[in-house]
């Protein structure tokens, strides 16, 4: 009984350590599969894209979040953010990403960010 308890404790500690120090994301108070979490991931991906204009990296990250549904997820997220009057800066970043992917819709046009003069490719 004592041995089983020690083993279970060790296993739990090891798992917690793995989550804390690397490995797959998880173990926090938010579910990595939840829409809230995926929305925020997409916002971060779009925010960084707005700065570095690194489309391959943004696309790789999007596919990690939504796989083959990446573009559909981006569109759905933008539409929902616009409809719910979410943070306008977040919407602008998301729209910039949609533009980078060549998937801009008329509803997104008002949220386009001006491109800095020295923005890289």
């Amino acid at each position: 009984m004592l041995l089983a308890g020690l083993l279970a404790g060790s296993l739990a500690g090891w798992l917690l350590g793995q989550l804390a120090s690397g490995g797959a994301l998880g173990g926090g108070r938010i579910d990595p599969q939840s829409q809230q979490f995926r929305d925020d991931l997409l916002v971060m991906i779009a925010t960084t894209y707005s700065d570095d204009r690194n489309l391959p990296t943004a696309w790789r990250r999007m596919r990690q979040v939504a796989g083959n549904s990446s573009v559909a997820m981006l569109h759905a997220t933008i539409e929902r953010f616009i409809a719910n009057s979410r943070n306008v800066q977040d919407i602008r970043h998301l729209v910039a990403l949609a533009e980078g992917l060549g998937r801009l819709t008329p509803a997104m046009q008002p949220f386009l960010l001006p491109v800095p003069a020295d923005a890289g490719p």
Binding site: L19, G23, P32, L41, T47, T48
Partner: peptide, 14 residues
């Protein structure tokens, strides 16, 4: 997404 990549993304967005 791995924890390292997530932390990197958070820092980059910040």
């Amino acid at each position: 997404m791995r924890s390292e990549e997530y932390a990197a993304l958070v820092a980059q967005a910040w």
